[in-house]
Design a protein around this nucleic acid. Structure first.
Length: 346
DNA sequence: AATCCGCGCAACCGCACTAAC
DNA sequence: CGTTAGTGCGGTTGCGCGGAT
């Protein structure tokens, strides 16, 4: 059974928005808000538009603090590094770029940045100065609380992607993300084996802070820094407007606890973290030390809901070019066929 | 000056997900 | 617990504009 249309297609206007429509929508929302119901909003606002269209227009164009125009080099780096890390999860990428929408980033990537990267000659690269930084014994699981992996475990296994340092490209310029864009602090110390592991990981970065590892180990506590931002083509404002949350979980139990606030601290034994991503749950380690990854999950951990990946912390241009030029492979570290749907990447 | 062509961007489409009933 | 309406997201489309011919 197909889904019912969200609106009466015959009676709604399509195409570019007029200044009058923009003004109407803006005025209405500023006055009354969305009321949590986009479907009925156009009628209330006196617009002959689909609610979806209104939402899109508002979130991508009319809402305050939208940044348009040229992307900076720093933004470029963030985009391509995140793309290599998580693929075309534009909303997640956008969440790291304040004022940018995922539609903007998607367009920018497709029309400019991709070509820019592909056009970069290897000679432009700097000398290597890093080693693969994610320890082999620290698998990272990325899971979705709601992903529906209908496929069998073998399919799931097939989707696993382990980061193999021996195969990583050494000699390519790492893509550094300015930590001030990604994190609120950059200090850490270690007090435990677990933290030492993470710390090693971080120290190996030599100043690099992965977008996917936007946290610090501080006084035995793992800290995450997140930068509030809004995003999404349909414009989900990841943490501000919609209160969507992300959980990071640590430890094999997979349980975690309730989320904590952005930038708060938590013990390493078991924690979860609430951050800026939409319902993103990142789990560090099914078996942190054993490195057995998936095999470390117990049935209660919903293995079908877990996907183990080992996102690299930085990427060379060649890696990204490879990524860009390969067909159907959205990134280096995830299910190349996206067979599991979006949830696979969450 | 007219036409063609490529590019950039806004908007749409359809599917997945979620919460409410 | 199943159904359904609403929302979120990523991929795709198509229009407008500017440069080339």
């Amino acid at each position: 059974m197909g889904r019912a249309p969200c609106c009466d297609k015959a009676n709604v206007k399509k195409g570019p928005w007029s200044p009058e429509e923009d003004a109407k929508l803006k005025e209405f929302i500023e006055k009354y808000g969305t009321g949590g119901n986009w479907i009925s909003l156009p009628q209330k606002a006196g617009l002959k538009r689909c609610g979806k269209s209104c939402r899109l227009r508002w979130l991508n164009y009319l809402r305050p603090n939208i940044k348009h125009g040229e992307f900076s080099d720093e933004e470029d780096r963030i985009i391509w590094s995140l793309y290599a890390s998580i693929g075309s999860r534009w909303s997640i990428i956008a969440s790291r770029l304040p004022g940018r929408t995922d539609n903007d980033i998607k367009n920018y990537w497709n029309t400019k940045l991709k070509k820019k990267i592909m056009g970069m000659a290897p000679s432009q690269r700097k000398a290597p100065h890093h080693q693969p930084s994610l320890p082999t014994h620290l698998p990272m699981a990325v899971s979705s609380p709601s992903q529906s992996l209908s496929s069998s475990s073998s399919s799931y296994q097939g989707s696993r992607s382990y980061y193999n340092p021996s195969e990583s490209v050494v000699g390519l310029e790492p893509i550094s993300i300015p930590s001030n864009l990604l994190s609120n602090c950059n200090t850490y110390t270690t007090t435990s084996t677990a933290t030492a592991t993470t710390s090693t990981l971080l120290q190996a970065q030599d100043g690099f802070m992965s977008p996917m590892h936007n946290y610090q180990v501080k006084e035995g506590l793992l800290m995450f820094g997140g930068e509030p931002s809004c995003s999404s083509s349909d414009g989900s404002c990841n943490q501000i407007s919609y209160g969507k949350e992300m959980e990071y979980e640590y430890g094999g139990s997979g349980g975690g606890g309730g989320g904590v606030g952005n930038g708060e601290q938590m013990g390493l034994e078991s924690f979860s973290y609430t951050d800026v991503f939409d319902n993103q749950k990142f789990m560090i380690g099914g078996n942190v030390y054993g490195g057995c990854g998936l095999d470390g999950w117990t049935p209660s951990q919903k293995p079908n809901d877990q996907m183990l990946v080992e996102p690299p912390l930085d990427y060379g241009l060649e890696e990204i070019k490879q990524l860009v030029s390969s067909n159907g492979c959205s990134n280096l570290w995830f299910d190349e066929n996206k067979t599991q749907g979006r949830g696979m990447y969450y």
